[in-house]
């Protein structure tokens, strides 16, 4: 069975989104959750680039992908900063311990 580039990309996107969501659901460490977010974004990026390539609009796809990279890097950095700040103020990176303390 040979797969067209678009189908490979769809498989990849679904795989990466799946891995990311598993990380969000099962993750306990705040930093790890940000890693899972990044995995999700990689999946979305792969989709954009593949879509551009399939439609013969590589540069448009690239332009969208760059915008997404910039925005989501900012989000990741803010997530990391929040995580570090929580570690400083609360003393833990554990999601479970955080929700326990809130009661």
């Amino acid at each position: 069975m040979s797969l067209a580039p678009l189908q490979i990309a769809v498989l990849g996107v679904i795989g990466l989104l799946g891995a990311g969501f598993y990380g969000l659901l099962a993750g306990r460490n705040l930093i790890k959750i940000v890693v899972a977010l990044q995995v999700l974004v990689k999946g979305a990026l792969l989709g954009l680039v593949a879509a551009g390539s399939v439609k013969g609009q590589v540069a448009l796809g690239e332009s969208l992908a760059v915008t997404v990279i910039v925005a989501d890097t900012i989000v990741a950095v803010m997530g990391i900063a929040l995580g570090v700040q929580i570690r400083r103020r609360v003393g833990t990176l554990d999601v479970k311990e955080l929700s326990k303390l809130r009661g």
Binding site: L6, A9, V13, L17, G20, F21, L24, L30, I33, V34, L37, L40, V41, G43, A44, L45, G47, L48, A50, A51, G52, V54, K55, G61, L64, V68, D72, V75, M78, G79, L82, G83, I86
Partner: peptide
């Protein structure tokens, strides 16, 4: 803030995936 950031960013990644699909 962290909870909000994570859920909102995850939603936004899904939107981008949807855009990729529509665009493709």
């Amino acid at each position: 803030g962290f909870k909000y950031l994570v859920q909102s960013a995850a939603g936004s990644a899904l939107v981008v995936a949807g855009i990729a699909l529509v665009f493709g």
